[in-house]
Design a protein around this nucleic acid. Structure first.
Length: 442
RNA sequence: GCCCCGGUAGCUCAGCUGGAUAGAGCAAUGGAGUUCUAACCCAUAGGUCGUAGGUUCGAAUCCUACCCGGGGUACCA
């Protein structure tokens, strides 16, 4: 509808004034109409005529050419042309399918990315909800979307959790996050524990078989926990990548390109981002160990191998990684230019709670599951019969109603409110509207 | 220090590829209705659009400087 109108207006401008104009059709305040264009203002600027005169001429022609599409064409203010759609056009637009910009194309969307052996916190929840929404949007635009996630299954955080699991008398079960929290605290406070954890970390890197059983237990526990939360959220993941997969691929890429893309500096292998206005980052440490950037390079290559036909690859993370990704993508751009061009990093801010609740009693971060449970509790209290869908709608809407970029504040009570800017409000409005329609047709 | 993001009504946020008196929800104040799932309705009040310059016929929107908050800034992720 919008595109068709814009084209008609552009054609008329060309006919009448012999000039090409980039037509902007905006949604003005309701009282002005359904669409509004500043085409006449643009024309006046180009031709040096009075805006209102150009607007009147344009409007007259539009009334003629648009026929039953519009019920009103008016000129207002300095020379805006306001269009009011006819009922017929309005109904037609309802039946028009959305634009299929990515029709039939494969698109990857990576989001969520919680690390096993740690709790999934509200930041991950934000990433999952935003990422899933973006994936759905792309699906609506016709894309064949693959939802991906990436998980750090090796590293110091694993050692911290394993250390606490080893010390525990009982077999590990339930919330894995508490083991991590215990290990992380000991690592900070206790020199002896720190040494033990560092040793454990080396063992993990060396794939020590004596750790395998505990490691596998912990990993399973983590992913079972993630799965439960994702099931509640109704979010699926098509492919999970692990750091242990991407690491060898990335190391190979860095080695192959050392001397070309990467440089040796102070014993480490680095990428000098300064040449593209960024900063230098280490890819291989002086001990020869891969950093996150190398692993991400490998991940990009892994995705490329499995999905060679992608039109677009989106990665969604928190804001803290924004500049890191610029450097990583700049390096990738020198190795695989076409791949880097198709990769787009989007970042979101941090979540804070209006209640001020950020960490639970143990000093861990506020968990994703914990938030979901708190919402369910608050919803049940206010609306004893509230459905799961209502709670989910509340959380998802509260997290997606903001523009991406800034930090967001989450307020449980506001999110479950039946009034105002909330998910349940929309759901209720929808239900009522359908009810009215149904009764009208009986 | 340098780089990135944010700074709009008491609160949470839209608007930021320049355009019509800066909008919404919540909260506040004053009213109306007792119901077809009332998703409420009407009205009032509330804003130096972080600050100061600049560009423009026109700036919340573009440019510059500065202030405040968050993040990043070589061997963590």
């Amino acid at each position: 509808m919008r595109d068709r109108l814009a084209k008609t207006i552009a054609d008329i401008c060309k006919d009448l004034f012999g000039t090409d104009v980039r037509i902007e059709l905006t949604r003005p305040e309701e009282k002005f109409g359904d669409f509004s264009t500043n085409a006449a203002l643009q024309l006046a600027g180009k031709l040096g005529t009075k805006p209102r005169e150009a607007a009147e001429k344009l409007a007259a022609k539009l009334r003629e050419d648009l026929g039953d599409q519009v019920s009103e064409v008016t000129v207002a203010g300095p020379g805006f042309i306001n269009l009011k759609l006819s009922d017929r056009a309005l109904f037609e637009s309802l039946e028009t399918a959305p634009a299929q910009r990515y029709a039939g194309q494969e698109v990857l969307v990576e989001f969520g990315d919680p690390n096993p052996f740690k709790a999934m916190h509200v930041g991950h929840l934000y990433s999952y909800i935003v990422g899933d929404a973006i994936a759905s949007l792309l699906e609506t635009a016709g894309a064949q979307v693959k939802r991906l996630s990436y998980h750090g299954d090796v590293g110091l955080h694993v050692a911290k959790a394993l250390w606490a699991m080893q010390k525990s008398a009982e077999p590990p079960k339930g919330d894995i996050g508490r083991f991590y929290a215990e290990g992380a605290q000991a690592y900070e406070r206790d020199e002896q524990a720190k040494a033990q954890i560092d040793a454990l970390n080396a063992q993990i890197y060396a794939n020590d078989p004596s750790l395998k059983e505990l490691y596998d237990q912990g990993k399973k526990l983590s992913f079972d926990d993630f799965d439960a939360i994702l099931k509640t959220l109704g979010i699926r993941t098509d492919r999970r990548y692990l750091e242990s997969e991407s690491t060898p691929v990335g190391m190979e890429m860095v080695r192959r390109n050392t001397g070309k893309v990467f440089k040796e500096s102070e014993g480490a292998i680095v990428y000098e981002g300064e040449k593209s206005g960024l900063h230098t980052r280490v890819f291989l440490t002086s001990k020869g160990l891969p950093t996150y950037e190398t692993k991400d390079l490998g991940l990009a290559e892994l995705k490329h191998k499995e999905y060679p036909q992608v039109a677009l690859s989106v990665i969604i993370t928190a804001h803290e990684q924004a500049e890191y990704f610029k450097v990583m993508l700049a390096a990738l751009g020198e190795i695989q230019p076409e791949l880097a061009k198709k990769t787009k990093h989007l970042s979101h801010g941090f979540v804070s709670l209006s209640s001020g609740k950020m960490s639970s009693r143990t000093g861990e971060v506020y968990g994703a599951g914990e938030l979901l449970a708190d919402v369910a509790k608050a919803a049940k209290k206010q609306f004893p019969n509230s459905a799961r869908d209502m709670q989910l709608g509340a959380v998802k809407y509260a997290f997606t109603r903001h523009r991406l970029g800034g930090d967001i504040v989450y307020d449980v009570n506001e999110s479950i409110s039946l009034e105002g800017n909330s998910g349940p409000y929309l759901q209720y409005a929808h239900a009522r509207a359908r009810s009215v329609l149904q009764k009208a047709s009986n």
